[in-house]
Simulated scan of single mutants.
Amino acid sequence: MSDGPHRSLGLRKAWKELARLADNLAYAQEEVRHAATVAISHDFNEVSGPLLKALEAIFHGHGNSLGSIEIALQQLNEARRLAAGSVFGINAVFYSEALVSAGRLEPNAFYEAIGMAARMRGRANILAVQEHYVREATESRANHVTRRIKSAFETLSDNTLGTMLVSARIAKVRPMRKSTGLDQGVAL
């Protein structure tokens, strides 16, 4: 007996887990949504810290006190080299350029660009899951899994998704403070 098509799925472990949950109706849609955010956050780890800092600085107007779109586009062109080797990063720069070209040069647009890049990655991986399930199972099962994963992503706006990814990344990077006194231990 097979363990299910998700086992041989050629994606990261978090995406395999998402496919497994979406395939089983015993799991609520909320659990599928949580697994979807975990999967996309694992993919977001490929985006370099320097690229994120550069994009955030551009949308906060650093080095561009006039708020000039031309200067911001030039800064984004320079930041593109920091995205080398990361499709997620390249998409983040692409959507940043689109938002800046539309005149959106405010901090919220940074989170929206990250969210749009995340949604693009999600779509690509959803398509990979669907194609795999069509090959390994039935088309109706593939459509069922795809529908559940898509609905999990549709509950999040681009801004919410981007904010969630960036804030989770910042929380991981912050080092823990070292306790220096005897009274700073675990409360008994």
Rank of each mutant, 00 (worst) to 15 (best):
F94Y: 14
Q29K: 11
I90E: 15
L21N: 10
H62V: 15
R104W: 07
N91P: 06
L99W: 01
R174C: 05
R177D: 10
S167Q: 14
S157T: 11
S86P: 00
R121A: 11
L25A: 15
P107G: 06
E70R: 13
L51N: 00
I58M: 03
N143V: 10
A79K: 04
L9H: 03
G10I: 01
E78R: 07
E139P: 07
I58F: 05
A137D: 14
G4V: 08
R169T: 08
R169L: 10
R135D: 15
S101D: 13
E30H: 08
A117F: 03
A35L: 01
A128Y: 02
E136T: 07
I40T: 00
G185H: 05
S101L: 14
F94C: 01
G63D: 03
V145D: 02
N64S: 03
L66A: 15
A19S: 08
D43A: 12
S2D: 14
L156K: 08
T163F: 12
F110Q: 02
L55Y: 01
V173N: 10
L52N: 02
K178T: 14
L18G: 01
S86R: 00
G103R: 04
M1G: 15
I69Q: 15
V87L: 15
F110C: 02
E31W: 11
A187H: 10
M176V: 14
N91R: 09
A14L: 06
A117D: 07
R174N: 07
K150C: 09
H60K: 12
A92W: 00
